[in-house]
Design a protein around this nucleic acid. Structure first.
Lengths: 205, 205
DNA sequence: CAACTCTTCTATAGACCTATAGAATATGTG
DNA sequence: CACATATTCTATAGGTCTATAGAAGAGTTG
């Protein structure tokens, strides 16, 4: 079916892999802008200056392209979060690091994240489950840090770790939608959100 | 073009208006579940047990149905928020009320809100601008309450009102996505989020 | 340059999907 | 019941979209 995998992958597979990269990039951008169902394979081809049918040399289907984009939209998140879980000292420090790590990729992979966030629901059953599991692992890490902070007295004991996690993730994911339009750096956004969540809006007095 | 508006609207227009209601409801549900582009007019008709073409007796186009759903998804939000702005006593009280008012409609109009939040970007130019203006008015109200709280000392003076508003709205809107799956009442969610935003996660000590 | 492989192209099948036209049915009224 | 109007139906035009088949061009190697 696919001829991509060849015995010789020094001369042959390299350019193919690079071109594939460009195509996934284009797909991510188009999916992020118009949504999976609103985007046509023609749109992707237009962005690359190639013919619609030529895309099928690289991808089996439009759905397969979405899978690839979503996979890259989640790549590394859980691993980074798990590293933070191990390395941090205080719960506050860990929560700040988790937040920053979640927001940072918006700098160079916004299209992938946006596509993952908004379009993953259209993935076929199997891969939808796979990314669902990843999401749940990430949520679990946030919850764990929150519980840890509650236990050691850093955080209020009456927090609801589950709702706090969901609120945090909702807040952070919304950054993907609006950060373009606002004239602030992602670092500043991450700091501001962390301050808000940790210290609250009310004055300390 | 449309025969809906007639001289006699006691006997004739009433049932029409009621049926129209049912159809908008079905459209909201289908749009919320599958997205505007992922949903077909056939899907809407199926939900109502009627023929696809019959929908066009009530709506000029699929787009017009989206406009109607989005209009209802925003109806009352700004008015309610403006009333809160007038009636509240403290900034904290007002912020809590704004938050509760934003979350409450998820109880009986989740499909409308979800469609508005996720699908408004596919609205035609004109109505997209209209709902855009509504959004901005709502954001302005949040910002105003935050600034007011900063001025009178209730809130920290180093808050960023704009980012805080966007974070808050992002957090609240995410509730539309996950509240179904969690076993908590909307009231409890509203309270928890308000506590988080006002007091923060850190212990008071 | 001939043969081979890789990449892109043209052309199109076949499956939707929106929207329109006009017939049929249901509902209400004199 | 006869007539009028409101609602839904059948049928389909016309457009778009994904995906396939097979030809053409580009690049490489003996």
């Amino acid at each position: 079916m696919t001829r991509q995998v060849q015995s010789d992958d020094r001369a042959a597979a390299r350019p193919l892999r690079k071109r594939r990269e460009e195509i996934v990039d284009a797909a991510a951008r188009v999916f992020a802008e118009r949504g999976y169902h609103g985007a046509s394979t023609q749109d992707i081809a237009d962005l690359l200056g190639m013919r619609q049918a030529s895309l099928y040399y690289y991808f089996e289907s439009k759905e397969a392209a979405l899978e690839e984009v979503c996979a890259r939209g989640t790549a590394g998140f859980v691993e980074t979060a798990e590293a933070i879980l191990k390395n941090g000292s205080s719960a506050e420090e860990r929560l700040r690091a988790l937040l920053a790590a979640h927001i940072k990729p918006l700098g160079d992979r916004a299209d992938y994240m946006l596509t993952f966030l908004n379009e993953r629901k259209w993935l076929p059953r199997e891969s939808r489950r796979r990314v669902g599991r990843l999401s749940r692992r990430l949520e679990a890490i946030f919850e764990r840090v929150i519980r840890e902070g509650m236990r050691n007295g850093e955080f209020r004991a009456d927090l609801n770790p589950r709702l706090t996690t969901l609120a945090l993730l909702g807040m952070m994911n919304s950054v993907a939608i609006w950060h373009h339009r606002e004239n602030v750096t992602l670092d500043r956004i991450a700091d501001t959100l962390a301050d808000l969540v940790l210290r609250g809006a009310a004055s300390d007095a």
